[in-house]
């Protein structure tokens, strides 16, 4: 028998005896009583868009989840009722007359059918002013074959003491194009990839390319932060904007845990992540932010 044949037999034998096997496990999962799920992330100077649905047991079919279209939703601002939201068949409730104001505290009360009624409150922080100190094009970061050219932005954040603040940064590019098909002008807006070496700014969120961070490490001080965004062809875009947000704590914790959830989901060697929820008697998120838009000149 040749060496290769012996090797094949040996490998087959070893592979067979140590190969992993899988089985379905019967486990007593506690009965899940469905609860209302409220999902609403909102910005100041806009209107509420609230999705209402329900939870299901872990072993049920996700396609059994439906939008709840007959919910009663009341919005209160600083404990004063502003009115109710109405269902729109595109998947959420809204009321164009209720404008969201920075600094205000909002409460949502939702009831529907036999589900326990749910509530949530959230205070939108006031806008924070930042200073763009420098925008530098064609900065090389990385080493050797991992090097890349980016645009470097330095900002200064004047942080207020005696309160915990949460911030977020995104960079958007906008370009305008003409459509000859319907003779119209379109504005295409998309976010650019962000990165940073500053541990205070943390990791970029994968899907939204958002840097979100707290002022825990620079509370009450002026903090100078440096980050980078992907280099763009200036001839193909009209402008680049920096969005600087003040996040409510619920918005921040939801964003952080949701990002971690997607990063680690289905990894059997990672501790599971509970996505943050602030809905009393239910699940989901009701959280706001206040943003400012600054055009970057470079």
């Amino acid at each position: 028998m040749t060496t290769i044949n012996i090797s094949i037999l040996y490998l087959l034998a070893v592979t067979i005896i140590i190969s992993a096997c899988e089985m379905v496990v019967d486990i007593d999962m506690p009965d899940h009583k469905p609860v209302l799920v409220i999902n609403s992330l909102f910005n100041s100077d806009s209107i509420f868009r609230v999705a209402v649905s329900h939870s299901i047991g872990i072993q049920e079919d996700a396609s059994d989840i439906t939008n709840i279209e007959n919910a009663t939703i009341e919005i209160l601002e600083n404990n004063i009722s502003l009115g109710s939201l109405s269902w729109l068949p595109i998947g959420f409730y809204t009321n164009p007359l209720i404008k969201i104001t920075a600094g205000a505290s909002y409460e949502i009360r939702v009831s529907a059918g036999d589900y326990p009624a749910v509530t949530s409150t959230n205070t939108i922080p006031l806008a924070k002013m930042i200073i763009i100190k420098q925008v530098k094009d064609s900065v090389k970061i990385g080493e050797a074959q991992m090097e890349q050219y980016v645009t470097e932005v330095t900002i200064e954040i004047p942080d207020q003491a005696a309160e915990v603040n949460f911030y977020a940064i995104q960079i958007y590019a906008e370009d305008t194009f003409y459509s000859s098909w319907d003779d119209s002008v379109w504005v295409n807006s998309y976010f650019l990839n962000l990165s940073t070496r500053d541990p205070v700014l943390g990791q970029t969120e994968e899907y939204t390319q958002m840097l979100k961070f707290s002022d825990e490490l620079f509370n009450g001080k002026n903090y100078s932060a440096i980050f980078y965004f992907e280099e763009t062809d200036k001839n193909s875009i009209d402008s680049v904007f920096l969005y600087f947000y003040s996040l409510s704590s619920s918005y921040y914790y939801y964003s952080v845990t949701k990002d971690l959830y997607y990063r680690t989901h289905n990894n059997p060697f990672s501790e599971p992540v509970q996505v943050y929820t602030n809905i009393e008697n239910g699940l989901g998120i009701f959280a706001g932010r206040c943003g400012s838009r600054i055009a970057l000149q470079y």
């Binding site: 486990i27 999962m29 506690p30 899940h32 799920v37 999902n39 609403s40 992330l41 999705a51 649905s53 329900h54 939870s55 299901i56 047991g57 872990i58 049920e60 996700a62 396609s63 989840i65 939008n67 998947g91 959420f92 899907y207 949701k258 959830y261 989901h265 501790e271 599971p272 509970q274 996505v275 699940l283 989901g284 998120i285």
Partner: peptide, 27 residues
Amino acid sequence: TLPVAQYPDVPEFQPYNEYFGFNTVEY
């Protein structure tokens, strides 16, 4: 630790549609 329930996430990037349903997270 095991999930006991699932529920729709904020329909930010994948709104509900008849083909894919909701994007759910586990509780």
